[in-house]
Design a protein around this nucleic acid. Sequence first.
DNA 1: GCGACAG
DNA 2: ATCTTGTCGC
Length: 233
Amino acid sequence: MRLLHPHTTPATEAEARAVQERLRPHTLLDGSGPAPGAPGTVVVGVDVAYDDARDTVAAAAVALDAATLAEVGHATAVDRVAFPYVPGLLAFRELPAVLAALGRLTTTPDLVVCDGYGLAHPRRFGLASHLGVLTGLPAIGVAKNPFTFRHPPPGPRRGDWAPLLDGDEEVGRALRTRDGVKPVFVSPGHRTTLADACAHTLALTRGYRLPETTRLADRLCRQALRDASPSDG
DNA sequence: GCGACAG
DNA sequence: ATCTTGTCGC
């Protein structure tokens, strides 16, 4: 896969924040990505797992048919951890391995679903935005926790949502993907609108809180990590 | 200064 | 993210 912008690991946190500020203007929040659930489109979920003791990270990319949710391909990559976890700078920790896994995919993604945020970020440039801008691919962020942002409680039923607010700006939505279960936190990354990001999330969710894309990617990257660093040696 | 803080 | 057994409920 060829990147529109190269990825390099910053030496400092200040440099990492500067990279985000420089790339942020390239973000597109339009409807140029695929329509939610459109037949024939390929939706790719990405996730990573860590082995702190071995300073190792494993990433997985799982491709599904958007209409049937049938798997159409997958790939993994194992790498050295390149950056520490710092709130707001997650992308620098996850991107190298994720980009490597995406590069090994033989199918072309029409949309990438990330674990974390896109627009809902202190500098409006979370992992999903960053990945989208570097690759040029439409991307959304689906996070399990609300980070810094406030939100009213969404209704109790699947599909109910409430705005994720930074002051009076709606940067994402707390979206109920299962009746009575804690919502997920959705924000657009690149080439999608907030409404479409939520519609994609619902279209990819079947019977569990998290989208099938992230569930499968989570399972696969954990397996890849085990294969790379067995419990003993 | 204190708390909060995606994964 | 990760460390970890059982347990309540459909």
